[in-house]
Nucleic acid binder design. Structure first.
Lengths: 184, 184
DNA sequence: GTCAGTTCTGACCGATCGGACAGTTACGGT
DNA sequence: ACCGTAACTGTCCGATCGGTCAGAACTGAC
């Protein structure tokens, strides 16, 4: 990563994101991040009170967007719910590719963050599956919904060489087909 | 987990599997495993030469099955390839639910295992995606294939309260629909 | 210049981890 | 009873980790 003209704090955040994505939160040490941006570990801990604070700051934007999507879904009804859930998740998966992978690969660590807990990120995953399943509790529909949500997570995080528009379109079309609501 | 009448070594393996799945490979210490089966850490290291050896032994069966599936796919042609890939992965995802989650959540650690490396687990993921995409390199087809593979991984690892037959059927039907090869 | 505040750092600390090792117990064959 | 081997354990060690702290270096305001 090396030098840049931006502030040290921003460079530390950017480095932490890529390192966390590559080697996981637990697999990345504070010394790794500091050495990547060529500063001291003490300097890193001057900008962030502790290691968890870095993870929280990286995940906070995605968390807010997920909460917003969850709220939007609660105001809908009928067939609009699954489609809105798919489009909403696809949009986030494209815009926050690395953050999605970070969240996905470090679920247990992220779930322990108080900064995200007092926001309402808790049952969102389950609610998204229910939404994509159209409220059905048939095993067939639940499996399809879970596969759709998981598939979008994985695909968004796969670092495909596709521009945002292409990826989002492909995600939405495939997801709607998977949950059996392909749009003509 | 506590006691049992089976051998200590088997109990250590079983405990390690559940603990690795729950808290990750890095997030589980040798002391955690030893204390879970109520024996000493030294005793654990008598049965397994080191921590990585435990992970390797847990993943070896799945690795072999994946290599076998990969080989079977290489002997097929045409439309049989995507269907065989889907059915093969679905079968493994059902039979090795916990191992799939373990492999998925600890990709980087698992990739570093020499025991699995000198077997051919390397490019299997990419080859499976290509197989499910039917050889197409269209972004649409590649995204659908990646979503299918990722979705099956996630769903198999989700610990759903479904029996093997129901889950496998739901996985296969949904996957074939996702890659656009739904069977009548 | 000097002074205050921000930024940054080297040195250090306690905790935890994976692992090594010598020694002890349990046990089956003779 | 003796002995060799397998199973098991207490204890110790070096490395690494996240985090603290006192102070150096830089900065602009006056």
């Amino acid at each position: 990563m090396s030098r840049s003209s931006t502030g040290l704090r921003d460079r530390l955040l950017a480095s932490a994101l890529t390192l966390f994505v590559q080697h996981g939160f637990r697999g990345t040490s504070l010394a790794d991040i500091a050495s990547d941006v060529d500063c001291s570990k003490a300097s890193l801990l001057y900008h962030f009170s502790n290691k968890e604070a870095i993870l929280a700051e990286l995940l906070l934007p995605v968390g807010k967007e997920l909460v917003a999507l969850d709220g939007r879904l609660a105001g809908l009804a009928g067939e609009a719910i699954p489609e809105a859930a798919v489009c909403g998740v696809a949009d986030l998966a494209v815009r926050f590719r690395q953050e999605f992978k970070l969240l996905f690969d470090n679920m247990s660590d992220a779930a322990a963050l108080p900064e995200l807990r007092l926001q309402g990120v808790d049952g969102i995953g389950r609610r998204l599956v229910v939404a994509m399943a159209g409220g059905s509790s048939e095993p067939q529909d639940e499996v399809a919904a879970l596969m759709t949500l998981g598939g979008m997570f994985v695909t968004g995080a796969a670092d495909l060489p596709l521009d945002d528009e292409t990826l989002r379109e492909a995600l939405i079309r495939t997801a709607l087909r998977t949950i059996g609501r392909a749009r003509g």
